[in-house]
Simulated scan of single mutants.
Amino acid sequence: MRVLVLYCHPNPESYGAALHRAVVENLTAAGHVVDDCDLYGEGFDPVLSRADRLGYHDLAANTLPVQTHVDRLKAAEAIVLVFPVWNFGFPAMLKGYFDRVFLPGISFGLVDGRTQGMLSNIRRIGVVTTYGATWAKATLLGNPPRKFCTRSLRAVTAFKASVTYLAHYDMNRSTPDTRQAFVTRVASVFSRW
């Protein structure tokens, strides 16, 4: 399977980088073709400019500023997101990716004013993330990243994709043992994906 890995962390020596390596190494070892997109490393511009917004619904031209990323997304059969949850949301870089690449005519279409998912090429969605908060606190606050990944992302695949959501909660009180156990879990899951 062709897997687009979207990695989003500014520090290449972070725990997130270790999780990213575990995902890529195990997907590759399992025989998948991995398109590894490091949003920070590639210098992705997350800002939706005025011109981008004005041309947002122009299906003939709205992809031009991000054509390479659109092509990568359309070529994928699966997508895996690796990111930290910051302030109960995505890092700005990843949010900007969704704003700029998940465009009308690419991830969704409008039919009689209603959206329809268009990324039917995506059969699987994987998420590897970390939270400073506990599971209980994240749940109490609605856990927006989880909802987006398990609902909105599935919707743009016309609800055809299955979702694997792996999260290390309570990073503020994590230990070397809990962090290593999570890396081991991530490696195990993606070695069998």
Score class of each variant (00 low, 15 high):
E25F: 04
R114S: 12
W86V: 13
L54W: 06
V186Q: 07
V163Y: 10
T130M: 10
G109M: 03
A60E: 15
E77L: 00
N143T: 00
T28H: 06
S120A: 12
Q67S: 14
K74H: 10
K137V: 01
V24C: 08
S174W: 11
R192H: 14
Q180P: 07
R50P: 11
A18F: 01
S162A: 14
A22Q: 11
G55I: 00
I125H: 11
A76K: 01
S191A: 15
N121R: 11
S191L: 07
S107N: 02
R192E: 01
A61I: 12
R154D: 04
M1A: 13
G31Q: 11
F90A: 02
A17D: 01
L153Q: 11
L81M: 11
G142W: 09
Y40R: 05
R2S: 14
Y15C: 08
Y56G: 00
T130D: 00
T164Y: 05
L110I: 15
G132V: 05
H32R: 13
G16V: 02
G43K: 10
I106H: 10
A61C: 05
A60H: 12
C8S: 12
Y40E: 04
G43Y: 04
L27R: 00
N87V: 13
V66H: 04
S152D: 13
R146K: 14
Y40S: 04
Y169C: 07
P10N: 03
V82Q: 12
A17Y: 04
W86K: 03
S191K: 08
N62T: 11
R2Q: 14
A18C: 07
L39H: 05
R179Q: 15
T129L: 02
D52V: 00
T164H: 09
L119D: 05
F90M: 04
A158V: 00
Q180E: 12
F182M: 06
F182G: 02
F190L: 10
L4G: 02
V183Q: 13
R124D: 00
D52L: 06
W193S: 11
M1S: 14
A22Y: 01
K137N: 10
H32L: 03
S188Q: 15
V23D: 03
M118Y: 00
T164R: 08
I106W: 01
V111F: 12
I122Y: 06
V183H: 12
D45E: 07
L110S: 14
G16H: 08
A181P: 09
N143G: 08
R179P: 00
R21W: 01
V23M: 03
K137C: 04
Y7K: 05
P104W: 06
C149R: 05
V128M: 08
Y169V: 04
Y131I: 03
G113M: 11
T184N: 15
D71V: 05
V23Q: 05
N62Y: 09
K160N: 15
T129D: 03
L110K: 10
D58P: 01
T157E: 02
Y97R: 02
F182H: 11
N11D: 14
A61E: 14
T68H: 10
A133L: 10
H20P: 00
E13D: 08
R21D: 14
L73K: 10
L110E: 11
A29H: 01
C149T: 01
L39P: 02
W86E: 05
N11V: 12
V85L: 07
